[in-house]
Design a protein around this nucleic acid. Structure first.
Length: 425
DNA sequence: TCTGGGGTCCTAGGACCC
DNA sequence: TCTGGGGTCCTAGGACCC
């Protein structure tokens, strides 16, 4: 019987797998990839997981044992991961009747076929991605997205399945037995808070939740969890959106490598961050009607922190870096507390609209058809690299002392001519 | 000394309108 | 000045995801 099914394809330990493609010595060793500023662990190889290293573990706490464990750490290299992601998505997309890219390492694709064909297609996808990109993927196939996620989890945890699990080709009793063992928190869309509240109602496993009354769940929780219950029972409730819906917000936020303690310093930070945000707006072809700036001291320090946040509304939506930088600097100047030890800051844009949309009268805007400042900056960056040009502090060749730290980074193997891998034969 | 960054969706409540 | 229902839009906050 031919059925319409959904496959969830994701890359195992994606960041680590990308590093391994270009450095095979990492194969078989415990490897972690760190967050910005080399702060904490964001990805782990199977060997690192086996050592008990958790996601979010601070690197400074692991460093002492790293040598004894033979543990290798890499800074995150988003240029590399982004490019590898695009390659994986392109290969996976060839197999589907539709494709929705869900995250940097996951996509849902539509498959048609009977149980045996679905499973065979899963194996073909795995082989193709390994051959063309070099990273291992797992495939879960089922009737709904929630179940496809669940099947993918089974594929990952059960080595005998060799990375592919199509629920249609498993005996129903077997599937049910697994659902009776796995706690609800292992389910897509059910986090810790909801799991705790469900437990009080005696709902602990996926099987419990599947058998729950959807109407009751909606009343006691939300329409979101009700959809989960229905999806567990085979009714599709979460639509697939092939083309990315328009973004609702754009952010740029970063922690510093060293604290910033002066208002002047925070103004420098904002000048740089507002520019980075403006560049993102320009790339997306959007302008914003509000900008929210945030900053924060340590969440872990004793005493009261300072977490200024200010929203600025623009009479005319804009993506002009000069306007945005001025507004951000003025706002932080008013809200930053002198002497506070700031560790992070961010810029967020909301109320987005396309650049090509109806123009309101603004005597300072570039005349129609002429490039604005953002376009010119973007063009220079495309030709000469991201660091080539900037306004004020954003244009310094030598980055300020608080800039992000990435000491253990691999080269941008696939996106910079100067950093291409060298092969000797 | 050191603890990520970037998002989405839903809901409740307030402002405002007819 | 008070009375009333019904509706939209916006924002803040919660929960979750990778």
């Amino acid at each position: 019987m031919t059925s319409d099914r959904i496959a969830l394809v994701d890359v195992n330990n994606f960041y680590v797998s990308c590093e391994r493609v270009f450095d095979p010595r990492l194969e078989g060793r415990p490897v972690v990839v760190l967050s910005n500023n080399d702060g904490c662990v964001v990805a782990r190889s199977a060997e690192a997981k086996a050592l008990g290293i958790t996601t979010g573990a601070p690197w400074f706490q692991l460093q002492a044992q790293a040598k004894a464990w033979g543990l290798v750490a890499r800074s995150s290299n988003y240029e590399l991961y982004g490019d590898m992601s695009a390659r994986v998505m392109e290969v996976v997309g060839r197999f589907g009747t539709w494709q929705e890219v869900y995250s940097i390492d996951e996509s849902f694709v539509g498959l048609l076929g009977d149980a045996a064909q679905l499973e065979a297609t899963g194996r073909d996808i795995r082989a193709a991605v390994m051959r063309h990109v070099g990273v291992p993927v797992c495939v879960g196939v089922a009737q709904t997205k929630t179940l496809a996620k669940f099947a993918n989890r089974i594929a990952k945890q059960n080595p005998a399945l060799a990375g592919v699990c199509a629920l249609d080709s498993m005996p129903a009793g077997h599937v049910h037995a697994i659902q009776e063992r796995v706690p609800v928190s292992g389910l897509w869309g059910v986090g810790g808070r909801t799991a705790t509240r469900l437990k009080m109602l005696g709902i602990e496993t996926i099987a419990d939740l599947k058998a729950a009354d959807p109407a009751l769940i909606r009343k006691k929780f939300s329409v979101v969890l009700q959809r989960t219950v229905m999806e567990l029972n085979g009714t599709e409730c979460i639509p697939h959106t092939e083309e990315r819906v328009d973004k609702q917000q754009i952010m740029f936020s970063r922690s510093f490598s060293t604290p910033v303690t002066t208002v002047d310093g925070m103004e420098q930070v904002m000048a740089v961050y507002a520019q980075r945000g403006a560049a993102r707006l320009n790339e997306a072809g959007l302008r914003a009607s509000t900008m929210t700036i945030t900053a924060g001291t340590s969440r872990f320090a004793a005493g009261e922190g300072s977490f200024p946040a200010t929203t600025i509304r623009f009479a005319t939506p804009t993506q002009d870096p000069i306007v945005l930088v001025r507004a951000a600097v003025a706002a932080i100047g008013q809200s930053a507390v002198p002497g506070a030890s700031y560790l992070r800051a961010g810029v967020m844009f909301n109320g987005l609209e396309p650049l090509s949309g109806p123009e309101m009268l603004d005597v300072f805007a570039a005349p129609a058809g002429q490039p604005g400042v953002g376009d010119v900056l973007g063009e220079v960056r495309t030709k000469f690299g991201g660091q080539a040009i900037g306004l004020g502090f954003g244009g310094l060749a030598e980055p300020p002392s608080w800039s992000m730290k990435r000491e253990l980074s691999s080269p941008k193997y696939t996106t910079e001519w100067a950093e291409l891998p060298v092969v000797r034969a």
